[in-house]
Design a protein around this nucleic acid. Structure first.
Lengths: 276, 276
DNA sequence: GAGTGGTCTAGACCACTGT
DNA sequence: CAGTGGTCTAGACCACTCC
């Protein structure tokens, strides 16, 4: 068979993949349905197995199909989305003035309510690092400024898969008045940042979430147990206090196939009745 | 040369890609630097050209390198990010009560300020469609409910590349009292949704943005002129009025390599001075 | 025109699934 | 154990870039 030259046309692998993609989008191939095997594609399109496989790979990279080695590829079934709302910022602040017992109870139940705690392992590592250029720019301080850093991980106890990951930076200068923060930094509950800052007289009055997205590295894919074609949502949280200082910068990562970020914006009411 | 069997090891193409990835992450290969060619990789790793190419493909899929056909692949230089803040929701509402002249002036200058208007072509198509299951669920209405739909596109006048895309749905029942909305629907400025709803007595009091991310299809890649390894950010905007009705649902898409979504959250002040 | 990556062939071997 | 996809070989040809 002579080579299927791309004579001004789109590559064959793309034509094959698009054909299947359209069948999926039309609902002709519903979620869970097997897509044509490599064998079938080589016969139907008269291409080498390698080209048929490239078409399969394209469909995986678009996040449309999944399948482990050895089984047929199937149309991806959407996963249940975990909602993460910026409402939690105010909820956390509301906890600051409550008693410690209440904080522990409400904090884990209301804000982190969704999962039985036993299934997961929390890990929190705290240390102190000089700011590199990127994080220094985020704070608007000089590179080298000492930062208190905490990295937080939630992993599935059985599979070892990562479920949550974030890192938080606070300028050491801001919190050095309360050595408790640094000494007891390894608590497994990250919701307490606002309370901790409150103990050194800092009130956070504004939080800015910056959302971007990017593809995982091969290592990220393994750690998060991500399938092909699934991006990562990246959220940088910037906490600003009543003196307009940036007091905390936090970066968090969420797999896009199981996370929905929600940001409610209340609008000011019109003061006067309208005239029409 | 005998086949490089994956003897319990990670695949060779992944080992090659990870080696280069680490050099990039260490800064050893800075943005713009050429990565090793296929030829070099075949010699250095003693693999077939195809395997070296697969390593290249992996690096592209991770969004780490770029390059057109015929030129060496280079480490990706981050693009300038266009910021899109949820502050625009309040800004748009503020415009509602202003005069038409002011709306036109401020609307295009403050909210859509960033780009010279001549370089882009705006296109807005309006029609009326019955709600499919998905969008009906978003509104909480029965499928088949008539919806007023507007799709909005901003394309680069020279290259034809897509720069903005969104679609907006409003239940026809809500706006049928003002036929002007439907008749004059093709205005190129999408910022006026709140004003248009105001003309039929609807005041939007809350807007909820839902953010997810996914990979583009091959067609999306062409239309947006997206390089490999760049996800799309997807924002569903739900507008709720003073009677807690969902009055508009809008879906927008943004390329993740040039868009940063920003969501400021003001927090309530502590009423009383703290006691310590 | 030399060099580069992109597509494709016609296989081989392997890992894994599912029966 | 038959069937499937994943990896890899050793090339060929093509499109494109850069000099």
């Amino acid at each position: 068979m002579e080579p299927q030259v791309t004579a001004g046309e789109r590559p064959v692998k793309i034509r094959i993949a698009d054909d299947i993609r359209l069948r999926i989008e039309r609902g002709d191939l519903p979620p869970g349905a097997p897509i044509p095997t490599i064998q079938e594609l080589t016969e139907r399109w008269e291409v080498s197995p390698r080209t048929a496989r490239d078409a399969h790979a394209l469909l995986r990279q678009m996040g449309l199909v999944t399948g482990r080695r050895g089984s047929v590829l199937r149309v991806r079934t959407p996963r249940r989305m975990t909602v993460r709302s910026s409402d939690r910022h105010q909820l956390e602040k509301d906890l600051v003035l409550k008693s410690e017992a209440e904080r522990a109870r409400i904090g884990t139940s209301e804000i982190e309510m969704q999962t039985p705690i036993d299934e997961f392992e929390f890990r929190c590592v705290a240390d102190q690092v000089p700011a590199d250029e990127l994080i220094a720019a985020a704070f608007g301080v000089a590179p080298g400024t000492e930062l208190f850093r905490r990295t937080f991980e939630k992993t599935d106890r059985t599979t070892g898969a990562l479920h949550e990951w974030s890192v938080s930076y606070i300028p050491v200068d801001l919190i050095k008045d309360n050595p408790d923060i640094i000494d007891n930094a390894d608590q497994p509950w990250p919701g307490g940042t606002q309370h901790q800052l409150y103990t050194v007289g800092i009130e956070i009055t504004r939080i800015v979430d910056e959302v971007t997205s990017g593809m995982p590295t091969t290592v990220d894919q393994q750690r998060w147990e991500l399938e092909d074609g699934i991006p990562l949502l990246k959220v940088r949280r910037i906490s600003i206090d009543d003196r307009e200082r940036i007091v905390e910068v936090s970066d968090a990562v969420f797999p896009a196939d199981r996370t929905k970020l929600v940001f409610p914006t209340p609008l000011k009411r019109f003061d006067e009745p309208r005239s029409d």
